[in-house]
């Protein structure tokens, strides 16, 4: 059991990171902190994908002998899984966009209510 946990320590770290992010999103009162939580959560997922595609001793998934690649058999074990990395490029873009929208909204809310604190804003809105 312990062996397994140690062997997959990367996943455990990823899960911890994600939980920190999720907790911040749900439990924090400050809007900016919520945004930070969201960024942490998304980063956790990105790390999760990257670490599942990584291999010991492998390198970037770029063929070294691209100009005459046909003469060399490509050894998959030498390269990290390119698919996960490509997926995460897209996910990073999505994450940045979401974060941008969230921060913009937080800023607008602040301009309107002069506060980042959720409870105070709701109190003000309910008046």
């Amino acid at each position: 059991m312990l062996q397994e946990l140690i062997a997959s320590y990367n996943y455990i770290i990823v899960v911890v990171i994600m939980m920190i992010g999720l907790w911040a999103m749900l439990a924090k009162q400050n809007l900016i902190k919520k945004c930070i939580g969201m960024a942490i959560f998304q980063t956790g997922i990105i790390l999760f994908y990257i670490s599942m595609g990584a291999k010991k001793g492998s390198t970037l998934p770029i063929l070294e002998h691209a100009h005459d690649g046909a003469h060399h058999a490509v050894v998959a074990a030498h390269y990290a899984n390119p698919l996960t990395q490509i997926l995460m490029l897209t996910a990073i873009v999505v994450g940045v966009a979401t974060l941008g929208v969230a921060l913009t909204l937080a800023q607008k809310v602040y301009q309107q209510n002069r506060s980042y604190h959720e409870d105070k804003i709701l109190e003000k809105l309910s008046k």
């Binding site: 809007l31 969201m38 969230a102």
Partner: peptide, 9 residues
């Protein structure tokens, strides 16, 4: 803002 948070989750 709440929708963004829940939607992202």
């Amino acid at each position: 803002f709440n929708y963004v948070m829940m939607g992202s989750i």
